[in-house]
Design a protein around this nucleic acid. Sequence first.
DNA 1: CTGACTGCAAACGTTTTGCACGGTA
DNA 2: TACCGTGCAAAACGTTTGCAGTCAG
Lengths: 133, 133
Amino acid sequence: MNNYITLLKSNQIKVTPQRLAIVELMDVHGHISVRDIFTKIQTNFPSLSLATVYKNINAMVENSFIKELKIVGQDAKYELTKEEHSHMICKKCGKVEDIILETKSIVSSATKISHYTIDESSIQLFGVCPECS
Amino acid sequence: MNNYITLLKSNQIKVTPQRLAIVELMDVHGHISVRDIFTKIQTNFPSLSLATVYKNINAMVENSFIKELKIVGQDAKYELTKEEHSHMICKKCGKVEDIILETKSIVSSATKISHYTIDESSIQLFGVCPECS
DNA sequence: CTGACTGCAAACGTTTTGCACGGTA
DNA sequence: TACCGTGCAAAACGTTTGCAGTCAG
């Protein structure tokens, strides 16, 4: 049985070919924009509608099944929700990569300073990747 | 002599009433969206055009005179460029606040792991502010 | 006085919506 | 079979553009 089918079902999301294609693309690419999802899927699935992509993406974000990633200078990208992680962004090639960083110390010092109750963080680091330099 | 006039001039930006209003609003509010700039200024400056706001914001971002801030769940906001800092975002009231955090250690560990040359970072911490809890 | 800035209206691209049809469970 | 999801077309947004007139330096 297909992994993506299992994944959707375990999140109470009804399985359709469109959704399978979206989830597979996200899994393979890691981070992907609506436009890219649409054009990539449409190649071998010409009947796919952009409205359907939007509707599904929105519902999945609503669910927390996927996460929206806003990056300055880029279109919004989407990724499957997984272990908390940060992002490395290459300013030359635009690549976005996951990286697991220790955030406890920064969060605890921010808590001390601000007196916020912090439960989520977004850390993006910009620079040039090894391949581009 | 008005501070904002000095500020614009020192960045080689021609001084106009529209730009003064925009810069003043950003300074006072810290972080503000295009829509809010437009509606707030328009109250006592009815001839202001939304296109002018966009043109100025874009030129100022281009200049690095101001910075764009993309936050999940909110419109893009703009802030005057100043000392590097991070952001606290209250999930209840939507408030965005600056906070100065030590980022050296996280950046250096990310550099070791990823081999990126990192020169910029965006750190956003989400939670509930003291006033809302 | 000249080039840059503004306001307006139109154009554009993106996202959302309503509705009839089709497919999943 | 019942309901949810899909595709289509239109509508609603947000942002950009071109142009003619105005203003800052």
